[in-house]
Design a protein around this nucleic acid. Sequence first.
RNA 1: GCGCCUGUAGCUCAGCUGGAUAGAGCAACGGACUUCUAAUCCGUAGGCCGCAGGUUCGAAUCCUGCCAGGCGUGCCA
Length: 560
Amino acid sequence: MSIVDRLEDSICQALKDAAFQAREAGELDFEQLPDFVLEVPRDKSHGDYASNLAMLMAKEARKPPRLIAELLVKHFRREGNWVAEVEIAGPGFINFRLDPGWLYQALPLAEEQDTAYGRSNAGQGRKVQVEFVSANPTGLLHMGNARGAALGDTIANLLDAAGFYVEKEYYINDAGNQIENFGKSLEARYLQQFDQDVPFPEDGYHGEDIIDTVKNIIKRDGDKYLNMDSSLRREFLVKYALEEKLAHIKGVLERFGVNYDVWFSEQSLHDSGAVEAAIRELDANGYVYEKDGALWLKGEELGLEKDEVLVRNNGLPTYYAADIAYHRNKLERGFTWMINLWGADHHSHVARMKAALKALGYDPEQLTVVVMQLVRLFSGGEIVRMSKRTGQYITLSDLMDEVGKDAARYFFVMRSHDSHLDFDLDLAKEESGENPVYYVQYAHARICSILRQAQEEGISTKEASRCNLALLTHPSELELLRKIADFPVLVREAALALEPHRLTRYAGELAGLFHNFYTHCRVLNSEPELRDARLSLVNGVRITLRNLLTLIGVTAPERM
RNA sequence: GCGCCUGUAGCUCAGCUGGAUAGAGCAACGGACUUCUAAUCCGUAGGCCGCAGGUUCGAAUCCUGCCAGGCGUGCCA
């Protein structure tokens, strides 16, 4: 448990005890304590913590909030919770001022836990799966996929740090219509390479990349597929192209710092009969009927807007049916929490997926879909136009060439997932503090520089617990300590909320506090005792920054 | 039409389960380098929190209606 949690728990407990004691003394009347909060006030003059308990009790106790606050304060016990002062303010807030001593505990803790600082056991080993990107293996990764990759990977990192057992998975859509389509497109490009005048399929894949793919095929196998039955030819072409595309996607994601535990093939669900089995189970549960030669799911009965097709009248199961089988498979593998990252264009699928889980007898709450809004690229203040029709777009690979992995990952995580993301290419390339990534990385590099020089000057680093940390009294030092102490709470809460953007926000704040400290406090030229305490502080910031950047998938450079 | 998301400073966005006087970064303006990396720091200015009601001690936050933008509303995925 983090020192912040411990502190907050003990103050809350003392508040509750105070209320019960007041009741015992016959001064206060209530049945049950309301759900009150203990929070950090915006305004520092309101102390380190404030509680609204007295105001919430006013109605039931039929006493003015300020009077209740007085009673609570009278019975409030300060032992063991670092509370130095208690005061009543405003409409009935109880404000607490703490002995700064509690903050100093953060440094020995961070130092001792080192790379584990920030981790917790909130998840208690619960088995969770994060499925993300899952782009069709028929093309290249675009900006939407890139955002999904950065967000998904960071969410997985967060959950891992919060004590969950996490597996990352990529669902390969290697079946169904789009593969059919892919085959037609490949075939057309293939034949075109031999100067045959074949029309390109209307809904085909226009990307230039598949022209390269067929060229590679020709390089390897020549005209082997030229005089061949069309369906057989497509089968060969698709098989080759899927392998190539998938290998490419894997490579790009690896370069982006994303490594999956499982690559799951949709086709395998068809081959194993899992799709059929899922439909049978839905049927057994009474949610399936036949109409117009197709099999339908009784969506309306499950709260959907309309019924949905599971198997088309041509006998082929829909993507939906396969997805139902897929999620059933996930649950059968023992995951009790499934997290999917989907683009906003798939949001209507969320309700359908949850309805299906319900129909299978599972709790829909076991699935959380993080829906991401669209990404717009900006360059020179102008939107970079992308065309799906012509296949002209900036890929994740291009983006990394342009701005680097660190900036790309940081920028994608910076915004809340349900907010549109304007990605400023110029800013991401900028090597200055205007670029939020550099700003944070620079703080880390500066710290490393100080520690390096200390070492060069032969200053031996002392353990935090052996330093006189009470010498750290400058406001910028206290704020830094407070921020470091908060880190484990931040990680836990960002994980449970599935909100990685809290990390980048915190990163900017922590780096800012450090830069401020840096200009106001000297480390190496201070008196030895103070110097050692500050070295310890700076080291605590280093550990926190490094762990933080690691969660985001961004490097923490020692020099810049 | 219906469903989901969004609307907060000039721009890009935070604001956790409702809490005290609404925040950050950038842009603007004014300052700070003999001293551990100026890729930095400090200060100033900037707001009917889309609009209108409601809930209550208290609303950017919850509810309802409206306005604006995005996405969706296939036997596509």
